[in-house]
Design a protein around this nucleic acid. Structure first.
Length: 282
DNA sequence: CTAGGATCCTGTCAGC
DNA sequence: TGCTGACAGGATCCTA
């Protein structure tokens, strides 16, 4: 779920409500969801929040970092005056906390709480010091942030993976950071490229357009507020899926392509559900 | 080294 | 209604 724009949305939201707060106590409801020693973060003040790819980095004043991976179904929820909830968008955003999918939560010194919900238990919190961070396999091998990546390097990456489908290459976090299934499909649509094209069959112009597309769709998602719970109510008063705001192809199989009017289809590429327009992606 | 598939876990939905 | 299998916005580990 949470891909780069959703994690960035969480970062920005939490900056407003938990930076400067002290962690009074830690509650671990699922052992698998928490790595490291919880007592090391109790009594510590949250100094800042960073993000690398899909990883959220909560920095503490004792120089420790809580690295959060939301994986498929993770959510971060803060129960301040206004509830802030972001991550995997489902109805549990609105449930009473801690809820049936709450795996970890902390009590803060202003009486509020930060909850980590994760239905499928793939995500986790990890307490790390500088040495842990410097040797972490995920962080050290992570590719560049999309907008920091040079077109030349993106092109080189495609050459290196000439035998892979384009979608597999951009989903691989070693190659470029933060792209997940939604933005892979949306980026390919933007560039007019079929997701299963071999990287080696692409020309330089297509490569540049794809990188531009990934940057643009992710930036647009961040600008629209990612997946916060309170920002989107449709005209008829019902709550809309935040994807409806900007997705052109993702989960729109059977709909008309907004660009050429052809039908949006769904298939499978790189082991993932893949959405594309049969008319204007080549 | 690359590429592809199984795997972790739980819930939902379609089809019988 | 109850069962079964497929699938789900991720990343790692194993194999060829």
């Amino acid at each position: 779920m949470p891909e780069l724009p959703e994690v960035e949305t969480i970062k920005r939201g939490l900056e407003k409500c938990i930076v400067g707060r002290k962690i009074n106590s830690v509650h671990i409801l699922c052992e698998k969801s928490f790595r490291g020693k919880p007592e090391l973060i109790e009594g510590q003040v949250i100094s800042r929040i960073d993000r690398r790819g899909k990883a959220l980095l909560i920095r503490l004043e004792n120089n420790l970092t809580i690295m959060v991976h939301l994986r498929m179904t993770g959510q971060m929820i803060h129960d301040g005056l206004e509830r802030f909830a972001a991550g995997h968008p489902d109805e549990s955003f609105h449930e009473k906390m801690p809820g049936r999918f709450t795996r970890v939560y902390v009590d803060l010194d202003d009486g509020t709480h930060l909850f980590f919900n994760d239905m499928r238990k793939f995500g986790f919190w990890s307490v790390m010091d500088d040495l842990d961070l410097a040797s972490d396999k995920f962080l050290t091998k992570l590719g560049a942030e999309p907008w920091d990546m040079k077109a030349e390097d993106f092109w080189g990456m495609l050459q290196k993976h000439s035998n892979s489908p384009v979608k597999a290459a951009i989903l691989d976090q070693h190659n470029i950071a933060g792209v997940g299934n939604i933005y892979a499909d949306e980026g390919c649509f933007y560039a007019g490229i079929l997701p299963w094209r071999k990287c080696g069959d692409m020309d330089r112009e297509e490569s540049d357009k794809l990188l531009e597309g990934l940057c643009k769709v992710m930036q647009a998602s961040i600008d629209s507020g990612g997946s916060t719970m309170k920002d989107y109510v449709k005209a008829d008063g019902t709550r809309g899926n935040y994807l409806e705001k900007f997705a052109q192809v993702f989960r729109r199989e059977g709909c008309e392509c907004p660009r050429c009017g052809s039908e949006i289809l769904k298939t499978r590429t790189a082991g993932r559900g893949t959405h594309y327009c049969k008319g204007c992606q080549k």
